[in-house]
């Protein structure tokens, strides 16, 4: 079987000649080249013979002649050839042909323009938004997060346990996004009641508990928080007051003072009471 004919094998053949050009000790290679180049030229030969020293000028101390091939591309090509000689791939796509290199894949989520914020934070920001003013909602969210990190650490209420595995209270203010997510996830309901029309008899609807996905649970919890916030009176005035009230309510949730906890309990109670309806003939196979 003949050896594979491709460009790399050709290069390997070339490498014997390039060995002299390799960047060893810098003065040696240019000297060789200079001497060889000078051999064809009579005028330079006479110059060389005029020189008192037997050594070529580039080898003399103090005289640093630029090598003959000091073009950047040339040097690069020679380096590539040298890499081939060592059996490496010189055309690594992550290095070659890119001004700033290739990004590491998979892209970290924060590098993606649409996912640059924490998932809970971005969902909640959109729930805060009114009249499609996203930028205002984002500013409000920034104010909320800032409030969370400047307010004193929450005093947890053991009767309102947060999510298992939550960090200790004094860690929360320095990671406000986690603080927010913890508050919302802790009061998020697990189920909602779905009414099946007319199944309960007498035109009444049959309430059946159905499980919620994480995003739905967060939405429900935050809408409850917003309901409470909208009925609260603000202490001050100005445009920072709404985000301040939201942030106060979030602190209240973590401290177990908020009325949102009661709502959650109530929904769970109803869900437990109606779980027998899951076996109803009309419901089976529908969920």
């Amino acid at each position: 079987m003949p050896p594979r004919l491709n460009i790399w094998s050709a290069c390997r053949a070339l490498s014997l000649r390039t060995r002299a050009f390799a960047q060893g000790p810098p003065p040696a290679a240019p000297a060789l080249l200079a001497r060889r180049g000078l051999a064809d030229n009579t005028t330079s030969r006479s110059l060389d013979s005029n020189n008192s020293s037997a050594l070529p000028p580039s080898m003399l101390p103090g005289s640093s002649q630029p090598p003959a091939y000091t073009s950047k591309e040339n040097e690069e090509a020679l380096n590539q050839l040298k890499m081939i000689e060592y059996g490496l791939n010189p055309l690594d796509p992550s290095v070659e042909g890119h001004k700033f290199g290739l990004p590491e894949l998979p892209l970290p989520s924060q590098k993606h323009a649409k996912h640059r914020y924490d998932s809970v934070v971005s969902q909640v920001t959109r729930l805060l938004m009114q009249d499609g003013k996203l930028a205002k909602a984002q500013r409000d969210m920034a104010i909320i997060l800032n409030y969370l990190r400047t307010s004193p650490p929450p005093r947890l209420d053991p009767s309102r346990p947060l999510l298992p595995g939550a960090p200790p209270a004094h860690h929360l203010p320095l990671d406000p996004a986690l603080y927010l997510a913890l508050a919302i996830d802790s009061v998020a309901p697990l189920v909602k009641l779905r009414g099946f029309k007319g199944l309960a008899g007498g035109g009444k609807s049959l309430e059946v508990p159905v499980p919620l996905r994480a995003r739905q649970r967060r939405r429900m919890a935050f809408m409850w928080i917003l309901d409470v916030v909208r009925k609260k009176k603000s202490k001050g005035s100005g445009r920072t007051m709404f985000p301040h009230r939201v942030a106060e309510e979030i602190v209240a949730v973590v401290e177990g003072r908020s009325s949102v906890w009661d709502k959650r309990t109530q929904v769970h109670k109803l869900g437990t009471a109606n779980r027998a309806n899951l076996t109803h003939q009309g419901v089976k196979g529908m969920i």
Binding site: Q110, D118, V121, S122, Q138, R139, A142, L145, N146, R149
Partner: peptide, 12 residues
């Protein structure tokens, strides 16, 4: 503006 870009963002 540096404060706004690095302290007052949603990305903390």
């Amino acid at each position: 503006e540096m404060e706004r870009a690095s302290l007052m963002t949603m990305r903390v």
